[in-house]
């Protein structure tokens, strides 16, 4: 592959996959895919394919990992060794996965009513079976549906999406190639009810003005993402006339 620069990633205002700068990839979510779990969901976000499952609350083990005042969220984000188009990966957690797991745990700690379950843990698993850029955002969006299905009380159903920068253009939801050659990447998770951010990471070069536009783009995309999440949940119930 010839060395790409970010300027090669956009031609006549369109991206390599034909999208406009503010266009999401196609997203579909299916709830209740893992029978053993309290709640689960599967997401296809562009070429990303991710499954998520929620277990608990159950007694925090080992005991010292628990909190006698409230529940602890233990998120585990991992990528399958066959998930990338590149070489065979190592299964389990590398340093990147440890960091993503930590920030994802924090996203969900923000919305779960933790004080209801002192001494307990809630396990949230996110397994990337196929990755094509933006897996942490897709994983959080998927896990949020799994969590809603679990019946664990939450304040909101968060969504996540990443905004990047190619040359001087802000682009929504970068895929892997764009991510590899972009000038900046800003993954975000947002609670739709109050619009507040619970995940914000940044890598690259960005002005303050660009950052606020990036957040605005993410919020706007959230309307679509939230609708897809809600449809996936609603689909499990069909008609409502209880």
């Amino acid at each position: 592959m010839s060395k790409k620069e970010s300027k090669d990633l956009m031609i006549d205002g369109k991206r390599l996959d034909g999208r406009n700068p503010d266009e999401l990839r196609s997203i579909s979510i299916k709830a209740n895919v893992i029978k053993n779990a309290m709640g689960s969901a599967y997401i296809e976000w562009g070429m990303n394919k991710i499954v998520s499952a929620v277990y608990g609350p159950s007694e925090a083990l080992p005991k010292h990992t628990g909190d006698s005042e409230k529940a602890t969220i233990k998120c585990r984000y991992t990528m399958a060794p066959f998930s990338s188009l590149e070489e065979h990966g190592r299964p389990g957690m590398n340093r990147r996965a440890v960091e993503i797991s930590k920030v994802t745990s924090e996203v969900f700690s923000n919305i779960v009513l933790l004080e209801k379950f002192p001494g307990n843990e809630i396990d949230i698993y996110i397994e990337v079976l196929q990755g094509d850029g933006g897996t942490r955002a897709a994983g959080i969006t998927c896990a949020a549906v799994a969590l809603a299905m679990s019946g664990i009380p939450i304040r909101d159903i968060p969504f996540a999406v990443s905004v990047g920068k190619i040359g001087r253009t802000l682009v929504l939801d970068m895929n892997k190639i764009e991510d590899n050659y972009s000038d900046a990447d800003v993954p975000m998770a947002i609670n739709p009810r109050n619009g507040e951010l619970t995940l914000l990471q940044m890598d690259g070069i960005l002005t303050g003005e660009e950052l606020s536009r990036a957040i605005e783009m993410a919020r706007h995309a959230g309307e679509t993402i939230s609708r897809i999440q809600r449809n996936a949940i609603g689909e499990q119930y069909g008609q409502i006339d209880a």
Partner: peptide, 9 residues
Amino acid sequence: MKKLIMPGD
């Protein structure tokens, strides 16, 4: 009217 409600609604 009965309505399906999701967490956060």
